[in-house]
């Protein structure tokens, strides 16, 4: 199936092109748009971006594989990114991870989210959930699932 950027995204892309010395700079922005549009980045989307920016598909693909926030496969379950780096670890991220194990979610052990002062922390979609306790996790998931 072909990937086509939405009209809204195409307008955004054209506007962004004016803000950079070279269209190649739009690689990450376009990958974000494709991911928001389809929930993941398909090879067809990579081809579409490559065409839009005038660079080879591989120049987009290797970039997409470098950054952990880009998903190259469809995401079936809710992605819960739990920070496991030191400050969160010291403040009990293990317990949160343990607690999440039995939930219907896709747990991603992620590196430092930059929320060390409000540890432990997790991110779902683009939102941070801070100062977590198992009870708080239950409440958050209840809302989202």
């Amino acid at each position: 199936m072909n990937f086509i950027f939405t009209e809204e995204n195409l307008i955004k892309i054209e506007a962004l092109k004016l803000r950079y010395p070279s269209p190649q700079a739009l690689c990450l922005p376009c990958l974000w748009m494709a991911q928001h549009q389809e929930g993941y980045i398909s090879i067809n989307a990579i081809d579409a971006i490559s065409e839009t920016l005038g660079i080879a598909p591989m120049e987009v693909y290797r970039v997409a594989t470098f950054y952990t926030m880009f998903h190259l496969e469809p995401q079936e379950k809710l992605n819960v990114q739990v920070c496991k780096t030191l400050s969160c670890k010291l403040c009990g991220s293990d317990a949160i991870l343990e607690h999440l194990k039995n939930k219907e979610v896709n747990i991603i052990h992620t590196e430092c989210l930059g929320s060390c002062g409000t540890a432990p922390v997790m991110q779902i979609n683009d939102t941070f959930y801070e100062n977590l306790t198992p009870e708080k996790v239950d409440a958050i998931l209840k809302e989202l699932l």
């Binding site: 090879i43 591989m58 120049e59 290797r62 470098f66």
Partner: peptide
């Protein structure tokens, strides 16, 4: 070589760290 000499860009390093590897685009 495929970037600078042939400009065909078929090969790239994908992934990162010790999981990085040379590859073509999937299926290509």
């Amino acid at each position: 070589f495929t970037d600078k000499i042939t400009h065909t860009h078929e090969l790239g390093i994908i992934g990162r760290g010790d999981e990085a590897k040379v590859s073509t685009m999937p299926g290509r």
